Simulated scan of single mutants.
Amino acid sequence: MVSDEEIIIQLKDGNMTAFKSLFDSVYLLLYFHCRKFVSDPEDAKDLLQNVFLRFWEKRSEIDIHTSLNAYLFRSVQNECLNYIRSSKISTTLDESLSDEIKNGLNDNEPSPYSDLVALEIEKIVEETVDNLPDQCKSVFKLSRINGLKNQEIADKLNISVRTVDTQIYRALKVLKDKLKDYLIT
């Protein structure tokens, strides 16, 4: 697997294949992270799109001192918090409107169904990760939850970087298979 530094170099060179590969490898996890802050699935997708678009547009200025995953998770979290702040301002303004106007503006609120689907997906992800073989689970959590680089994981677990790559690939493959009914292809 390619290191974060190599991916960043490729991105700075405008390599769209590297960007797509990065997008494909982290989108689902970033989506679940985003849903911790934003209940509406469409809003979460829009926010992720904003993060990736800004990341691509500012790729030449990228200066990451943590792992690429940690950087993206932090970017998503900041995007969500900004969205929540702006929503609170909008809510304050909406409260001053008459009830007739407010009723017409609330058509896009999350439905109980979308909330249940999100909870179901989170449960599937948690159960799937918990049922991974021990080494695969450890590697995956260190990578995707703790945001460690593959070399850092290899050093920490005393395994090769190639083993780390393989374990992450296997975990993502299992997750993709378990979530195939929820993924848009």
Results as ranks from 00 to 15, higher is better:
residue 106 N to E: 13
residue 91 T to I: 10
residue 84 I to W: 11
residue 136 C to F: 00
residue 120 E to K: 08
residue 103 N to R: 14
residue 108 N to E: 12
residue 127 E to C: 04
residue 140 F to S: 07
residue 118 A to Y: 04
residue 115 D to T: 10
residue 103 N to C: 09
residue 150 N to D: 11
residue 91 T to M: 14
residue 89 I to M: 09
residue 132 L to V: 08
residue 97 L to H: 05
residue 93 L to N: 15
residue 108 N to M: 03
residue 84 I to F: 12
residue 122 E to Q: 02
residue 153 I to A: 03
residue 137 K to E: 06
residue 101 I to N: 01
residue 118 A to P: 06
residue 134 D to P: 06
residue 147 G to L: 06
residue 147 G to Q: 01
residue 113 Y to W: 11
residue 115 D to M: 13
residue 140 F to G: 05
residue 92 T to S: 14
residue 138 S to E: 12
residue 108 N to H: 12
residue 146 N to H: 13
residue 126 E to P: 01
residue 79 E to P: 04
residue 129 V to Q: 03
residue 151 Q to D: 12
residue 81 L to V: 14
residue 138 S to Q: 14
residue 129 V to F: 00
residue 136 C to E: 13
residue 119 L to G: 15
residue 149 K to W: 05
residue 123 K to T: 14
residue 67 S to C: 00
residue 119 L to W: 08
residue 91 T to V: 10
residue 145 I to A: 12
residue 92 T to Y: 12
residue 94 D to T: 09
residue 94 D to L: 14
residue 80 C to M: 07
residue 92 T to V: 09
residue 111 S to R: 05
residue 125 V to N: 03
residue 79 E to W: 03
residue 112 P to L: 10
residue 129 V to T: 00
residue 79 E to I: 03
residue 73 F to S: 14
residue 112 P to V: 02
residue 88 K to N: 14
residue 121 I to M: 15
residue 139 V to W: 01
residue 127 E to D: 13
residue 95 E to D: 00
residue 108 N to K: 14
residue 147 G to I: 09
residue 80 C to Q: 04
residue 124 I to Y: 08
residue 125 V to W: 04
residue 99 D to G: 01
residue 93 L to M: 13
residue 93 L to G: 04
residue 113 Y to V: 11
residue 119 L to K: 11
residue 122 E to H: 08
residue 143 S to E: 01
residue 97 L to D: 12
residue 112 P to F: 09
residue 78 N to A: 00
residue 139 V to H: 08
residue 136 C to P: 05
residue 91 T to G: 03
residue 128 T to P: 00
residue 111 S to Q: 04
residue 69 N to K: 13
residue 120 E to T: 11
residue 72 L to Q: 05
residue 149 K to S: 14
residue 132 L to K: 01
residue 85 R to M: 00
residue 92 T to P: 06
residue 106 N to W: 06
residue 112 P to W: 09
residue 129 V to G: 06
residue 151 Q to A: 13
residue 130 D to A: 15
residue 151 Q to W: 05
residue 84 I to L: 15
residue 113 Y to Q: 10
residue 130 D to C: 02
residue 142 L to Q: 00
residue 95 E to V: 08
residue 120 E to V: 05
residue 74 R to H: 13
residue 128 T to R: 03
residue 122 E to Y: 06
residue 79 E to H: 04
residue 82 N to V: 13
residue 118 A to L: 09
residue 139 V to R: 11
residue 101 I to V: 15
residue 104 G to Q: 10
residue 147 G to W: 07
residue 96 S to C: 01
residue 124 I to G: 02
residue 90 S to W: 10
residue 143 S to H: 12
residue 72 L to W: 08
residue 153 I to Y: 07
residue 113 Y to K: 13
residue 103 N to L: 02
residue 106 N to P: 00
residue 111 S to N: 00
